[in-house]
Design a protein around this nucleic acid. Structure first.
Lengths: 249, 249
DNA sequence: CGCGGACTTGACTCGTTTCAAACTCTGTGG
DNA sequence: CCACAGAGTTTGAAACGAGTCAAGTCCGCG
């Protein structure tokens, strides 16, 4: 139903130009952080660097699950679909994030590139042996899994119990914190995803997201410079709304 | 805000009556499955058997996180609260389930006993060493974490994109499958939780849950023998509704 | 027997969705 | 250089599904 071409550039395969783990741009952020040089060399031998264009699908929901990835650059979205086309985005991936948790035989979600992305690929079948050879790797992945669990549970609270205004505020706070973690300012905030993606992430419609952002803008909480660039004018207030703590006027 | 007494019966502590891992009733189900005798003995030394009455809180959201548990018998609910009292139940725990994923410094949710429960307790601080000493334990916990991630993501789809009818159907299917996994029939289905718990789990109100169950009963999909005992009369149809595949009449 | 809590049912309200149209970019081709 | 097309976004009006408020029922239990 989506475009199927899954081009991988062979020129970037193996231990080429940026394929060296030692020199990896997300070393401090990803599940390979904290590993020693010997471990990184071992890892280097079993990983492949790949690249996808904006809009391409890296993982198809329902395909048999054979690979995991680490996102090195760009932004991705993970989503699940119902038969009639209703879509739920279960998360966005940013550089350093691990893509490969929460599935067994088949992938239980799709993963698409929101921007051009570079990925570090590893065959799942190699993981058990790597866990033995590389001390700390399994623990890092477990830690990543634990983080993911608490994040998704937080999202359950958002989807199950928050109003549209609270959901949008929660989303903005999340993206802002994400930017901050990556050393960027949280105020002129870049939103790499469309309104439709935002809507499908927080369980609303495009129209409601748009209306809610407009109203927040009128309220002086944010300023919409362009549809994809938001200035947060009242951080504390935004947080209060996200937490459900606003004495709504 | 809830009752605070956290009674633990000293009579069940340590390696007493049912404290032996070898003889544990959930050995095949829990994260300790597949471990050898030597490992079980090691585990035995660092675990404590505890018991809580119905309604008691085992873990308080916000408390500093020092312990993990394995649920040996009974049913629990995990929940998160907003400041104004809105509640989201993020999951129910059944025998064999691991309680201790998805938190770091502090517990990010509360855990309460829905029925009298028995638990196997372990200090989190011991886990790193245990992972070294007991081969397979960390992998089992990672597998449990992975299962939890995919379950919670499934729940995101339910909360974000399904109608009330679909949510209730999804819930019933989940509980039925849960019963099946524990060797019970899935049709005369025991619901150990209240309507309020169901509502807070699937993001609805008590009234909507009640109305929806009534309507399903009228439609001949289920029969409500008592409020807590449901017969599933049309399993395929229930599944179709849960999947969003019903050409609703 | 009567109280209280859990559940069910009904009538009405309201927030979000739906449907529809207008606006705003950005890229393209005349 | 500007008109145009198309996708994404915003805005408006109306419809609807779930929430709210309020009764009423069904139990179990003191």
């Amino acid at each position: 139903m989506k475009q199927e071409k899954k081009r991988e550039e062979p020129g970037l395969g193996g231990a080429s130009l940026h394929g060296l783990c030692e020199a990896c741009e997300v070393r401090g952020l990803a599940v390979c952080s904290g590993l020693n040089s010997a471990s990184l060399l071992k890892l280097n031998r079993v990983t492949t660097q790949t690249r996808f264009d904006e809009g391409q699908t890296v993982i198809f929901e329902g395909d048999s699950a054979t690979r995991s990835f680490i996102l090195k650059s760009g932004v991705m979205r993970l989503s699940k679909m119902l038969a009639d086309g209703r879509r739920q985005i279960i998360g966005f991936l940013f550089p350093g994030d691990f893509l490969g948790l929460g599935h067994s035989e088949t992938y239980s979600y799709s993963a698409e590139a929101l921007t051009p992305v570079t990925l570090c690929r590893i065959e799942q079948s190699r993981l058990p042996q790597l866990f033995e050879e590389i001390p700390g790797l399994e623990a890092n992945i477990l830690a990543a899994a634990s983080d993911e669990i608490s994040h998704v549970r937080q999202q359950l609270l958002t989807l199950g119990r928050k109003t549209a205004r609270e959901r949008v505020a929660t989303f903005l706070v999340q993206i802002a914190c994400q930017a901050e973690r990556h050393g960027q300012p949280r105020s002129p905030l870049e939103l790499p995803m469309s309104r439709a993606d935002i809507a499908d992430y927080i369980g609303l419609t495009v129209e409601t997201v748009s209306r809610t952002l407009s109203r927040m803008s009128k309220d002086g909480i944010i300023r919409l410079d362009t549809p994809h660039c938001v200035c947060i004018l009242a951080w504390e207030r935004l947080n209060a709304i996200a937490a459900g703590d606003e004495a709504q006027a």
